[in-house]
Nucleic acid binder design. Sequence first.
DNA 1: GGTAGCCTACCTACTGGTCGGTAGGTTGCA
DNA 2: TGCAACCTACCGACCAGTAGGTAGGCTACC
Lengths: 203, 203
Amino acid sequence: MTKRSRQDRPTRQAQILETAARIFCEKGFDKASMEDVADAVGLTKAGLYHHIGSKDELLFAIMSYGMDLFEEKVLNRVMTIADPLERLKAALRGHVLLVIRDRPKEVTVILHETNALKGRFRDRINARKKRYIKFLEKTFREMIKSGAARRVDPSAAAFAMLGMINWIYQWYRPGGRLSDEAVADALSDVFLGGILARPSGPA
Amino acid sequence: MTKRSRQDRPTRQAQILETAARIFCEKGFDKASMEDVADAVGLTKAGLYHHIGSKDELLFAIMSYGMDLFEEKVLNRVMTIADPLERLKAALRGHVLLVIRDRPKEVTVILHETNALKGRFRDRINARKKRYIKFLEKTFREMIKSGAARRVDPSAAAFAMLGMINWIYQWYRPGGRLSDEAVADALSDVFLGGILARPSGPA
DNA sequence: GGTAGCCTACCTACTGGTCGGTAGGTTGCA
DNA sequence: TGCAACCTACCGACCAGTAGGTAGGCTACC
């Protein structure tokens, strides 16, 4: 699969991945034709197929790269934090900032084209997603045990957080009223502290 | 566009909508062919086209019906509640229960095929979505003013809530560990009260 | 240093199949 | 008779993928 060149061509494979991610993101996997991708890379369709095995395989490669990005930039960096509260805060903020500031098309493709992948490809991506969910659930359980969190349902909390974050790409556009940091702050604030005023005591 | 029959055939149109919604939901709009829909309805493709104008028009009709459902069963019922806290609670619970218990395929199609619609069709659906967002933002502002809510950003809170709810269809499967009511309770709890135990006092 | 052999990276031209949509005919009920 | 509700048969467009060729570079050996 991954062709290697000494160093005269470290680009092509990466360039194809990046370009295809952008196009799948813009037009959708089904509506984007391989000719669209080939044109954008500056190849013919047959030339493109010299580098990749199939459209499905290309999609899988994009998603795998997206998961690599997420795990490298978020999950792996926070997993080792001992205190569950700090771990959650870091994951929450890191995840939001990843999708809001870096906006990797590869991650958006993961979110929007879940059903486009089939069989083993799909299973492998889903397994990596599940790993993150388990991580969140475990963190919530530890927070509850340590008294840092209320007795919320860990699974529901995990999916609520994921929903909040994974929906961002549907509405957030850079250059809006709220800055990247402001959005990250606001969403963290809502998720951690909820909407309601404290039932009693000072604000 | 919408053909009308006196009342001998109130079924066909509705049957087509419902069936097409199911199929678009299962296979995705792009991958579902009009022959798939026609077969499922028990017609040929040409027979199906006797009732509808185009595939896009069919998708628009499905989404419009989905918005009708949502507005009738949720938005219109809670809009008149005077107290903003009770209004929000009712909207939150009603919305979650709609997507979790009734699971109208039409609503799922709205969420998953946003980009499939183009031009005026898209604008009309988006306008109805925007109306709901404005409603939520206004409710949050009233809650803050009345002291029922913390000083969260109303827009961010609205999108956080929408993300949480609109993501449900990605993970919730009936018959799981949590009942419909339990999921509605858990998500309401997380969103209203947040994750943290009584905080020491954030800004 | 020349050349044979081979390889990577592409290209042109095509296939088999699918899909949205339609023209024009048939059927059966009012 | 007239019209709604279908059908058969088809079109043109497009698409994933491929067969088979070529240009140019690297390597090995003389």
